Simulated assay, not measured.
Amino acid sequence: MRNFVDSDPKNKANPSRNLLHAAQNGDRDAQEALLELHLPRLRAFVRLRADPALRAKESSTDILQSTCREVLQHLDQVEYRGEAALRGWLHTVTLNKVREKRRYHFAEKRRPDCEVQGARDSQLGDAYSCLCSPSNAMIHDELVERVELAFDELSPDHREVISLSRIAELPIKEVAERMKRSPEGVRKLLARALVKLSALLEPGDALPGR
Rank of each mutant, 00 (worst) to 15 (best):
L189I: 06
E153M: 08
D157G: 02
I167V: 06
G88M: 09
L42I: 07
A50P: 02
L95T: 06
L124N: 11
A13Q: 10
V116S: 13
N25L: 01
D76G: 15
Y128H: 10
R103W: 10
E148V: 08
R111I: 04
D51Y: 02
E142L: 11
D113L: 12
D113F: 14
T94C: 10
A127S: 14
N18F: 01
A33H: 01
E108H: 08
F106L: 05
H21N: 01
A119D: 15
A30P: 02
H38F: 05
A50S: 14
T92G: 05
Q123E: 15
Y104M: 12
G82W: 06
A206T: 15
R55H: 05
G209E: 13
T67Q: 04
E36R: 07
R43G: 05
K101R: 14
G209R: 08
E153L: 05
V175R: 07
C114P: 00
E148G: 11
V98L: 02
G204S: 13
R99N: 15
A193Y: 06
A168L: 01
D51S: 00
C130K: 13
Q24W: 05
V98P: 01
A191Q: 14
F4Q: 04
Q123P: 06
G125F: 08
I172F: 01
G185I: 11
Q123F: 14
P208G: 05
G88N: 06
V78Q: 14
I63S: 01
I162G: 03
G88F: 07
Q117N: 14
E83S: 10
R69T: 12
L20D: 06
E115M: 08
L72E: 02
L34W: 03
L207V: 13
L42S: 03
L64I: 08
R69K: 12
K109A: 14
D6F: 04
N25D: 08
Q73R: 12
L37A: 05
L170C: 02
A137F: 13
L39E: 15
S133D: 12
E184C: 00
A84V: 07
K97Q: 13
C130V: 15
A191M: 09
E169I: 01
L149R: 14
E100M: 07
Y104E: 13
K101S: 02
R103S: 08
R178G: 04
V175D: 01
D62V: 05
Q65M: 10
E83N: 11
E79N: 11
R192M: 10
D126C: 13
R55N: 03
A56Y: 03
A85C: 06
S59Y: 00
R166F: 03
N3S: 14
D76L: 13
A199F: 12
A13P: 00
S133M: 12
N14Y: 08
I139Y: 13
I167Y: 00
K196L: 04
